[in-house]
Nucleic acid binder design. Structure first.
Lengths: 223, 223
DNA sequence: CTCCAATCTGAACACTGTTGAGATGCTGGC
DNA sequence: GCCAGCATCTCAACAGTGTTCAGATTGGAG
């Protein structure tokens, strides 16, 4: 449809779609701007009226994907099992959503996760990181995470989850049974949360490293 | 030196050195095979007598770097503070070494860490992952990690550490004070180990997800 | 000294991201 | 209806890329 039209209509998102498909077919790096343009039926230079460079295209795709993922993770939390939204189960659901995504769509996940700093001014909403922060707040409010352990906790949990997702997307780790992924993810989340809680109870007796020193989360300067 | 010689001597490692330098100067992707060849003073096609493709060069550099890192991490463990080699302090030292490296040499770290599966037949020795495994064994032997939690524990710790390193190398997270990095790393390691230990004590009462389900670590098929 | 295998060169191929000058077609004012 | 203006797209070109291959150059074994 819209064949032969000189003006495409919505070339910008058509290019994003084509790039996304190409990433899935040929891997995060196995495609070119020219190819995406050709697939949409447009000359290579047309793309430059919508993206300053190939890299800009990639970043735009990353941001679109991250926003979509954030939305989905939020839903995952809502539909978590357990009675009356147990905060820990919600967090496990979040973790499983994140890790599952990196496994179900590994090529796109690689592109997005490596992506280096997403443009600092980008307003990804809701950013997956924000969803995590909100869930940790909920857990803390429910008494599941002692106050002294709350500060910087998102950093610890995020690192563990991110590490898991990256290892899986990069194929450095592999599970034969897909259900094992959920179990392992749940284990990582539970372990991390338990560790954070226990750390707090030991805090008084420990001389150093008692509180978080996260100074700036570059991705979320406004947070 | 060795100017004008038709035969270079050790072109292979000279190319690796040039590539490493270029990665540091221009980022993980901001260089070309041709550039590396030119810097060594050799025609582009000469490189193809030592590496099947540019990608092979990159992988070789990754492997060389990983082996170097493994060695260094091992030393880090040996020189850990604390009396008589406290296993937990050794693990913290390992973690700090890993994370510190990704921060001190971020461009190379990005190249290596993203790297996708390193060639399955590659004999990186000692692989950082093996060093971690050995340290966890030592901790378990010293009674610092209950038996039921030992299985698959390297996977949990590795994910957390890897996540931390990746976040820092990618610049998604930033610390103004370099000493804060060590504190955060120590916190992540301690949290993870504590969580693993506690998980074991709860294990009897929990219905599911009691034991690890790591089925295959793709990187270390022999492990 | 001679020959061989390893090593490197030179020129070419198809392809890439990117640019700038010009063609095309939609849109709003007359 | 028509025409100007403008965003959008095309065409042709540039420099640079990874990669290949026939042939030149060499150090070392016989």
């Amino acid at each position: 449809m819209a064949k032969g039209r000189y003006h495409h209509g919505d070339l910008r998102s058509a290019l994003l779609d084509a790039a996304e498909a190409l990433v899935r077919e040929r891997g995060a790096d196995g495609w070119s701007l020219r190819e995406a343009s050709a697939r949409v039926g447009v000359s290579p230079s047309a793309a430059y009226h919508h993206f300053a460079s190939r890299d800009t295209l990639v970043r735009a795709l990353s941001e679109r994907t991250l926003a979509w993922l954030g939305e989905r993770l939020r839903e995952h939390c809502e539909h978590a099992p357990g009675q009356a939204g147990d905060p820990q189960l919600r967090l496990i659901a979040l973790g499983c959503g994140y890790v599952r995504w990196s496994l179900d769509d590994p090529a796109v996940a690689r592109l997005v996760l490596r992506g280096g700093a997403t443009a600092p001014d980008s307003a990804i909403s809701p950013h997956p990181h924000d969803v995590l922060t909100a869930e940790l707040d909920r857990l803390a409010a429910a008494g599941g995470l002692p106050e002294p352990a709350r500060e910087g906790a998102e950093f610890v949990v995020w690192a563990a989850l991110h590490g898991l997702a990256v290892l899986l997307a990069d194929g450095l780790v592999h599970f034969d049974d897909p259900r094992a992924v959920d179990l392992q993810t749940a284990r990582v989340v539970r372990t991390t949360l338990n560790g954070l809680a226990q750390e707090a109870s030991h805090a008084a007796g420990r001389p150093a490293g008692r509180s978080a020193h996260t100074e700036r989360l570059a991705r979320r300067p406004r947070g």
